[in-house]
């Protein structure tokens, strides 16, 4: 998967976010085994302890499950993954609306813009 660790924010927070995305978009399907910590860490170019901390966080939230002998698996709980997807979508939507307001678009204009963009046209330009 594509990792993108940027400056300024704790690495582990970014790993949690990017792992969440991989869980909801099916990079790691429900119930499947995820690669070992060391593999994931090397892949992301991050410290294994930091990756461990991120996976622990996801485990505490029930999104990953530790298997006694064989690493971790993605939860098979579709509701939990749906809730996560919803949470991420809500926060992206809120961010988008905030940015549109900052540009001075009102609600009707924003809705219209979304509809146009989704239909693939941008008639204003």
């Amino acid at each position: 998967m594509d990792w993108n660790i940027t400056a300024g924010r704790p690495v582990y927070v970014q790993l949690v976010e990017q792992m969440e995305l991989a869980l909801v978009n099916g990079t790691f399907p429900p119930g499947s085994k995820i690669p070992p910590v060391r593999e994931l860490a090397a892949d992301a170019g991050v410290n294994p302890n930091t990756m461990q901390r991120a996976l622990q966080e996801l485990e505490n939230r029930g999104l990953l499950q530790a298997q006694r002998t064989a690493g971790r698996t993605v939860t098979a709980d579709a509701d939990a993954l749906q809730a996560l997807r919803r949470k991420r979508a809500v926060s992206l939507a809120a961010e988008f609306l905030y940015q549109m307001q900052a540009l001075g678009l009102d609600r009707a204009e924003t809705e219209e813009l979304l509809r146009q963009t989704a239909e693939g046209g941008d008639r204003d330009e």
Binding site: A7, G8, R9, P10, V11, V13, N47, T50
Partner: peptide, 14 residues
């Protein structure tokens, strides 16, 4: 590293 990023909002490099 993460403690420093959390505390300062900067990367170690910055």
């Amino acid at each position: 590293v993460d403690a420093l990023r959390e505390e300062t909002g900067h990367s170690v490099d910055e």
